[in-house]
């Protein structure tokens, strides 16, 4: 079996602080493997059998290599970094286009595709469906479990409905659940990962024109942005006396 896991590197938002003006301080914020992507990788590792291969792929700047290294430590067998200055500024469409072109050219014969539900840095769960659309495969969002019995089956959770669906070869799974405490590699894993080459591919390797990737290949443009003007004043009130504080709240909500 050949499993392909698409991952993303994100800033570790749990350690993003704000300055006195409430602006985010991104300086010194470490980059990590997006937690949902780690769930996706974990799911692939869990179902992996003898002789199966897990490939991980990311599109990103050269330093995204560290996210792939983490994937190798956690059990991926090979890693591809799609990196090119021309990829910069890609929106969802251009990203999915790049990933699908890579997949068609480098791993055309794959069994299952895995994505994380969403990136923690504000993406909104679009890449998996756009990728599935471009690959023409089925998509299984909000998947919490994957089992093999008489074929692959995904357990999906749509808040108001939980269902189990059969997968076909080539289908894409978007994983929304995993261990709350991430796994840790062993030293043996670290050594193995250190000995695995991370393959770097650029636009030409993948075979895409400049107008298919990055900002030029994007279908949306940010035309303006403005600071959030929240008129909330953040008044401080002393709530040392719970009874008084409760009365105060009651006055506001009633």
């Amino acid at each position: 079996m050949r499993f392909v896991v698409f991952v993303k590197q994100v800033p570790d938002t749990s350690s993003v602080g704000t300055d006195e003006n409430g602006n985010l301080m991104r300086e010194g914020v470490p980059s990590i493997l997006n937690p949902y992507c780690e769930f996706a990788l974990d799911m692939a590792c869990r179902v992996k059998g003898e002789g199966d291969i897990i490939s991980v792929v990311t599109m990103g700047p050269p330093q995204a290599e560290s996210a792939l290294f983490r994937c190798l430590e956690l059990g991926a067998d090979e890693a591809f970094l799609l990196t090119d200055r021309a990829f910069a500024g890609a929106d969802v469409y251009a990203t999915a286009k790049t990933l699908s072109a890579f997949l068609k050219k480098f791993i055309p014969d794959h069994d299952l595709l895995f994505c994380g539900r969403q990136a923690m840095d504000g993406d909104t769960a679009q890449v998996p469906a756009e990728l599935a659309s471009m690959m023409g495969c089925g998509q299984f969002y909000y998947t919490e479990d994957l089992v093999f019995s008489d074929g692959w089956k995904a357990v999906q959770n749509y808040y108001d409905e939980e269902r189990e669906c059969a997968l076909k070869k080539g289908d894409l799974i978007s994983v929304s659940k995993g261990e709350t405490d991430p796994r840790l590699p062993s030293v043996a894993d670290y050594i193995r990962a250190s000995g695995t080459e991370i393959k770097k591919l650029d636009r030409v390797d993948i075979g895409l024109g400049t107008f298919s990737v990055g900002l030029k290949g994007s279908k949306t443009r940010i035309t303006s942005s403005r600071p959030v003007s929240i008129s909330r004043r953040g008044i401080l009130t002393d709530g040392g006396d719970p009874t008084e504080a409760a009365k105060h709240i009651k006055g506001m909500v009633r």
């Binding site: 350690s15 560290s66 983490r70 062993s186 030293v187 043996a188 894993d189 670290y190």
Partner: peptide, 17 residues
């Protein structure tokens, strides 16, 4: 013991863990 029966971590968040 063995190298398999171990944990390691080099990312900041892991080292904090």
């Amino acid at each position: 013991g063995s190298l398999e029966n171990s944990w390691c971590g080099h990312e900041l968040r892991d080292r904090e863990r």
